[in-house]
Design a protein around this nucleic acid. Structure first.
Lengths: 216, 216
DNA sequence: TCCTGTGAATTAGTTCACAGCG
DNA sequence: CGCTGTGAACTAATTCACAGGA
């Protein structure tokens, strides 16, 4: 059923399809064509069908997809039919915003601990959590049975922290620090680099006319 | 000099190379090989050379790249040798974290206004800024000569807001709302979807063993 | 010799186009 | 018929491999 390797771009689109399916679900629609889904997700119907085809045949020819059934399939494919225990490493403003971000909770990601180095922040209450000393990282990861870490620190300490997280058993990391983390086989890292996003926009602004005219 | 179309993946890597070049610069290195840069950026030396070759020949055979000179070239290519005037649309926690985020300022992105719908937040002081009523969007965009908008709102109002931004003359948007925005030709949108990032990690966790073993 | 710059080869990803089922 | 599912065709991106200048 599962091919050797699914492209990251496909997985991202599946997550996007799921979001729209759930919107349609809420609106009471119960059948949807690949064309309609593609339109909402900003892609083509062939792409939608191809993406889904890697995992099975979920549609009805001549009809489309059952919204409920396809949403359920996608949640299953994406591993979203369980909850994840998340540790937040770093307690700056961005970390604070992420802890509050309802999208995480709705999707099954529960922040179970927040770690920080700065003594001024240790002991603060964050919602139901207390910010803990990062020295206790290993203990917390084990006691809380952490599945996934969100790393929200400056660049400098990031590699050392990820080494400790991996040693303690964490196998998935969402990294906001602007460094390329080195991790062993079997550990997944996703990077989010806000500066890079802005810089690609800067590039687009600067080179906008290149796509139309020859001269610069 | 500039080919018709540069892949987004290439532009992102250029931004990453620049970050590391600046680190090396700060450490006093003045020459660097494509191999060293590739290692830091998590790619291959051939990829580094190919990425750069789209824009020119910046290295010295047998030696490598002059760190200062290449950094300057990349800043020029990326359009980072000027400052950008940014409007933040939405004044939630994430917006607050982004406004404070030093990386933006260091890279030349100045937040010149923050807009919000919620009357409770309008009038709050954010650093040197006062949160303004989103009704004044058009006026603010024009008076502040905004180059770029960061959209940090729920999904619902996002399309309407982007329509107004575009009508007012904004041509680049960094979108955190979980919708696929429809914009006319010539307007650039970059999406950052934190839920999607977590969901691809969830997928990776679930399918980790598939890469090695046959059975599931 | 060392390391860049780059066509050529390869691999990955997307789109086409149509057979086949409801 | 309508719309899915999917090989085949195509396009894009990466990697190879080597010529050539410092």
């Amino acid at each position: 059923m599962l091919p050797r390797k699914i492209a990251d771009s496909t997985v991202r689109r599946l997550a996007i399809y799921l979001r729209f399916l759930e919107e349609f679900e809420a609106q009471g629609a119960d059948t949807l064509s690949s064309k309609a889904l593609a339109h909402r997700a900003g892609t083509t119907s062939a792409q939608v069908r191809k993406d889904l085809s890697f995992f099975g045949s979920f549609g009805k020819r001549g009809l489309g997809y059952d919204v409920h059934a396809l949403a359920r399939e996608l949640r299953d494919i994406l591993g979203l039919n369980r909850r994840y225990r998340v540790i937040m490493v770093g307690a700056g403003r961005l970390a604070g915003a992420l802890v509050q971000f309802s999208g995480f909770n709705e999707r099954g990601f529960d922040v179970v601990a927040v770690l920080e180095k700065d003594p001024a922040k240790i002991g603060q209450r964050w919602g139901g959590l207390v910010v803990e000393d990062v020295r206790h990282l290993e203990k917390v990861v084990k006691q809380q049975r952490v599945d996934l870490a969100i790393l929200v620190t400056p660049a400098d300490p990031a590699q050392g922290l990820v080494d400790r997280l991996v040693a303690a058993g964490v196998t998935a990391v969402l990294n906001f620090a602007p460094v390329q983390l080195q991790v062993p086989e079997g550990v997944e890292v996703k990077n989010v680099n806000l500066a890079v996003e802005l810089e690609t926009l800067s590039y687009a602004i600067k080179h906008r006319s290149d796509n139309r005219a020859e001269s610069a």
